[in-house]
């Protein structure tokens, strides 16, 4: 008999609770544009902030609400995602330029000898606040991996041999988290093309040439040879440091050959033909 009572009682409680839930759900229902949720589900969901909005949810609302998609770009999802959303919402998408993160430092362990042995926690921000660096260069990469930890996509790995970060450009969404995390501010989001060909100066040292050269064999010494050889006036030298303007650079690679310390980095170019100028792109 007890067992029947128990079953009945539980059933009644269940029914009452179910009814209560039903009415509560009905009463407190909020009307939200269903598109929000659908667009959000199309976004990567990393909440990286690369679009400039606080999280994917807010960005999705903006995508739905704004009349056009101009100026709205999900860096993480890339063109594919934006196209998909554009088709879904019936709005046109302008193809945004592709950017990837690069580190402006080539000072691997063999090029930049250590001057002190630093003992402390594994944090670039902390090391940068305590010392000028464990090498004679006070501008270059510290190598303790703040960028690696900042990257939400796992696109950065510190190479244990060079102690420099390596960026996986296929993964990189140019969200800029690593650039913000870097206490030296030597990570740049750089324009690139579909084959990921780009040329940039792999050094951030603003010391005088001799000092910089002494600290690191791959340092930019500010000699200005690259600026002279550049036909497009893309290269400027300030504070003994060259900078290549990605907008003006035509990827001719003359500067790379001219640089005496090999500080200029080219990526993904086909191998050079000897003694012959090669027009690219």
């Amino acid at each position: 008999m007890t067992i029947v009572h128990s079953i009945l009682l539980l059933c009644i409680i269940g029914i009452i609770a179910g009814l209560a839930l039903y009415f509560v759900a009905k009463k407190f229902k909020t009307d939200e544009n269903p598109l929000y949720g659908e667009v959000e589900s199309m976004l990567p969901g990393a909440n990286c902030g690369g679009c400039g909005f606080p999280g994917c949810k807010k960005f999705a609302q903006q995508l739905v609400d704004s009349p056009s998609l101009e100026g709205l770009n999900c860096t993480a999802g890339g063109a594919d995602t934006m196209n998909k959303i554009g088709v879904f919402l019936g709005k046109s998408v302008e193809s945004a330029e592709i950017r990837v993160a690069v580190i402006k430092c080539k000072g691997s362990c063999d090029k930049r000898p250590k001057t002190i042995n630093f003992e402390g926690i594994s944090s670039c921000a902390f090391a940068a606040s305590q010392i000028s660096g464990d090498t004679a260069c006070s501008f270059g990469c510290i190598g303790l991996g703040d960028c690696e930890r900042a990257c939400q996509f796992g696109g950065i790995k510190i190479n244990p041999e060079t102690k420099l970060p390596e960026f996986d450009t296929k993964i990189c969404t140019a969200c800029g988290q690593c650039a913000t995390a870097c206490p030296r501010h030597i990570i740049e989001l750089r324009k690139t093309n579909k084959k990921d060909m780009k040329i940039y100066v792999g050094c951030s040292n603003k010391d005088k040439g001799a000092v910089a050269r002494k600290a690191c064999t791959a340092a930019c010494i500010g000699c200005g040879k690259c600026a002279k050889v550049c036909a497009n006036e893309a290269i400027t030298v300030t504070d003994f440091l060259a900078y290549i303007d990605p907008e003006k650079c035509k990827l001719c690679r003359k500067c790379v050959e001219e640089c005496p310390t090999g500080a200029i980095i080219e990526t993904n170019f086909p191998p050079r033909k000897k003694k012959e100028e090669e027009p690219t792109n």
Partner: peptide, 8 residues
């Protein structure tokens, strides 16, 4: 080469 670490 000297060792450098923050205090203490």
């Amino acid at each position: 080469m000297l060792t450098v670490s923050p205090s203490p």
